[in-house]
Structure formats: structure tokens, C-alpha cells
Amino acid sequence: TKAMIFVSPSNPTGAVYPRAEVEAIGRWAAEHGIWVISDEIYEHLVYGDASFHSMPALVPELAERCVVVNGVAKTYAMTGWRVGWMIAPPDVTVAATNLQSHSTSNVANVSQVAALAGVSGDLSAVAMMRAAFDRRRRRMHELLNEIPGVSCVEPQGAFYCFPSFAGVVGREIRGRRAGTTLELAGLVLDEVGVAIVPGEAFGAAGYGRLSYALGDDDLVEGVTRMGKLLAEAE
């Protein structure tokens, strides 16, 4: 093993590693000479008692073998602007710059100015957005666990729920039998117009990802539609 990718808060599960685990993983990587690519894109989107911890901040000796990636897409709701950054040892940064310059040339000037405005301001707007996500997170988690055959651990970060559909997969619904969550996702989309990302996309068959980055009414409508459909499983 040469490198590991560490993501906390996590997409798709919404899991957030506690400080002790982040530090323990970082020290293990440092002791074994393992590079760490730390994806910190959801650092400001944590809820309840959960808190974000950056691995190289907790384990400074890891800094020379750590690459931190982040951006404005999630914290500042700027997904379409395509602006991010990397913090890494100088030789890694030079190599990445050479590769990127031949792939996409450079980030558009207007996107750079917009991103600068975002990161230069305070986080008051982010706090308002996080409060809305927190409300939707709790509501989606509640609704999902009311569906027969579906169970969901409460997410602590990001803006996704990742429920298990183990009690539904393989059962007949409206004359169709979905043997996988990939097939179940197609069935749900066809029958009630609700899109979920099947767990197979993340190497986790039997699960599905739903986002609560949408309006409260749309969230309730979508999960309710899906719940009524899955309740028909025989």
C-alpha cells in the first residue's frame, strides 16, 4: 500500500470520524510511510455533537506525506464554478500543476474572483445553510426509517443519507423483482420519479444514497413517494 484516501465527513455515508480515530489513522500512516490524500470538502457541514478534524493538523509529522484537497463547491454552494485547491509538499504541487495545466489549462477568471469572495467572507451564510441541512437531515432520516424494509444510520456530516434496502431487495414490487439496489433504483425512478444513487456505485451493494440538499417540501414528497412504493413489496 502506497497511499490511502481519507474522507471525513464522508460521501456517501455522512459519517464523521472522531478526533481520536483521525489521529490514530494519521499516526499509523506516518509510522508506515503511507501517503494520505485527505478530502476535506465537507469540513464545515457537520451536525450535532460531531466535529471536523484535519489529519495533518492532528499529526504534523504526516505533512510531508499528505495531500489535502478542498474547494468551494459544498461549503459555499458553488458546485458549478469548479474551483478547488490542493495543499501538498512542493514537489507534489509542481507535478500536479504540470499535469493540470495540460488538462484544463486554468480556472476561469470569473470563477476565481467568485471563489475569493466566498473564502474571504465570514461563515454566517454557511451557518444558515448548515442549519437548513441539519433540519432536512433529521427529517429524511426519520422518514427513511419509517419505510418497511429500509434502515438508516443517522448521518453526522455532508448532506447525504445512505440507507440499507436489504429488506426490500429481491421482493416483488408492481410486478417487478429488483435483485440489486441498482435495479431497485431503476424501479423507483420509473414508478415514482425519485432518483437515488445505488450503493453499487460506491462498492456497497444493498445501500442507496439520497441527498437532502433540496427544499423541505420536495424532500418530504420524494421520500414519501418512495416509501409508499416500497411498502407494496411482497
Rank of each mutant, 00 (worst) to 15 (best):
E183V: 02
G71K: 07
L99F: 13
A213P: 01
A15C: 07
I196T: 08
A125L: 14
V194P: 05
V192Q: 13
E23F: 08
A204M: 15
L58F: 12
T1P: 11
R177Q: 14
N70M: 05
R137A: 07
A158R: 02
A195V: 14
E40R: 05
A233P: 03
Y160T: 13
A29D: 10
L143K: 04
E200M: 06
V68D: 00
N11T: 13
V197R: 06
N11Q: 10
Y160H: 12
V113M: 14
G193F: 09
R130G: 06
Y212R: 01
E200P: 00
A96R: 03
G208Q: 04
A50V: 06
A96H: 03
S124F: 12
R174V: 10
L62H: 03
A63Y: 06
H44N: 11
D91F: 10
A73T: 04
F52R: 05
W35N: 01
V192G: 05
G206W: 06
V7H: 08
L219E: 03
S38A: 15
V69P: 01
A3Y: 11
G71R: 03
I41E: 15
A50C: 07
M86P: 00
F159Q: 00
F162S: 05
D218H: 12
V153H: 01
C152L: 00
T181C: 04
I196F: 15
M86D: 02
D122Q: 04
F159S: 02
R130H: 02
A88Y: 04
G26S: 07
E154F: 05
L123C: 07
R138W: 05
A205D: 11
V69N: 03
G84T: 02
A108Q: 09
G175I: 09
A29F: 14
Q100M: 14
V46S: 01
S164E: 04
A30S: 13
G33H: 07
R137K: 15
P155H: 14
I196K: 00
N70W: 13
P163D: 07
I5G: 02
D91A: 10
W28Q: 08
A178F: 05
A29Y: 07
Q112E: 12
T224Q: 11
P163Y: 03
V188I: 15
F133K: 03
